[in-house]
């Protein structure tokens, strides 16, 4: 009981510490007192530039991307009653990056700064809706994951096509950035453009989370206890689509965070999908902020992409979680 009560405050505090640490650590050595002074508006212009234009937005972007993937993963797992459901695995992230790349390729981003987030969110919503539709038709978890794999592969193939046709190396490198996933060089402007979608998606998921608990009983019994299944599906798809789309718009496709965070959180919240949303969001945000610090301090010639690191750690975790599952549930 006490661990449950402490879970959220502890995670929130850890996130705050990680974000401050992300501001302290970087390629330019900057003493802690100067960083802290810069954070509260003191110090000289150079320090303020490093902290406010480079490190802080990057840390906040990592947190937002992680948090939205964590909450979307937890909500989709609740809706589909399956611990392997996650925006990345189900092809939602890939579809969102495809749509984002598409808007880059055709120069829609030059027309309006909103084009890219809106494109990413449209891609995410379309993919989530497709998965949810498939989930109504098939009860099999395996089929659903396979549909996600198919969707991911298709989006990947379409991305390759766009890269194949890329007019110049600059757009090619832009596209690769989206595919690999990174929060490097993000500014508060980009965060501001995606923030409304993050918060709308998160708010929808949190407001409708109670139904996810009821779905533990299965769809039939859940409607028996008073759940409006149709509404629950629509709202969860909408919320997860908005949040995932916003995260792809800000950081590209970063996989597996949405699967790992809820998996760690679940035992602490009595395996209740509704109560796993907030802690999953915070933990996934924390994971990405910390992972991004590592990416920055690792002495590699080319900075590693956050999405690559996340997949290197997350994919084995995915396989491990899949192996833990008992055959009974399928």
């Amino acid at each position: 009981m006490t661990t449950r009560a402490l879970l959220l405050p502890a995670l929130a505090a850890a996130c705050l510490v990680a974000i401050v640490a992300a501001c302290l650590i970087g390629s330019t050595p900057l003493p802690a007192d100067r960083v802290l002074a810069a954070l509260v508006g003191g110090a000289d212009a150079g320090d303020r530039l490093v902290v406010w234009q480079i490190r802080l937005p990057r840390a906040i972007a990592a947190f937002l991307v992680g948090a939205s993937l964590g909450i979307s993963g937890a909500a989709l797992q609740g809706l589909l009653r399956n611990p392997l459901a996650e925006p990345g695995v189900l092809g939602v992230s890939a579809s969102a990056s495809l749509a984002a790349t598409f808007s880059l390729y055709y120069g829609l981003t030059a027309i309006s700064p909103w084009a890219l987030p809106v494109a990413a969110i449209t891609g995410a919503l379309a993919a989530t809706a497709l998965i949810a539709l498939a989930a109504i038709r098939t009860q099999s978890v395996v089929t659903l994951i396979l549909i996600g794999v198919g969707l991911s592969s298709f989006a990947g193939a379409a991305m390759s096509l766009l890269m194949n046709l890329a007019p110049n190396p600059f757009s090619l490198s832009d596209m690769i950035n989206w595919m690999l996933g990174s929060v490097a060089n993000r500014s508060f402007t980009e965060i501001g453009l995606t923030a409304p979608f993050f918060f709308a998606g998160g708010a929808i998921l949190l407001a409708t989370r109670r139904g996810l608990s009821a779905l533990t009983l299965g769809e039939e019994a859940a409607s028996g206890v008073g759940l409006n299944l149709r509404h629950q599906r629509i709202f969860t798809v909408l919320g997860a689509g908005l949040a995932t789309g916003a995260s792809v718009a800000l950081g590209g496709a970063i996989g597996f965070v949405g699967i790992v965070a809820p998996h760690i959180v679940r035992p602490f919240v009595g395996y209740d999908p509704a109560r796993s949303l907030m802690p999953s969001a915070l933990l996934a945000g924390l994971i990405l902020v910390v992972a991004d610090i590592f990416v920055r301090v690792l002495p590699t010639t080319n900075e590693l992409k956050l999405g690559v690191v996340a997949a290197l750690i997350g994919a084995p975790a995915f396989a491990w979680i899949a192996m833990q599952r008992r055959a009974v549930h399928d």
Binding site: R81, N82, L215, T216, L217, G218, E220, A221, G224, R266, Y271, D272, P273, V328, H329
Partner: peptide
């Protein structure tokens, strides 16, 4: 009470 199905969690 529908026919009993395994609980998801």
């Amino acid at each position: 009470l529908p026919q009993i199905r395994p609980l998801a969690w």
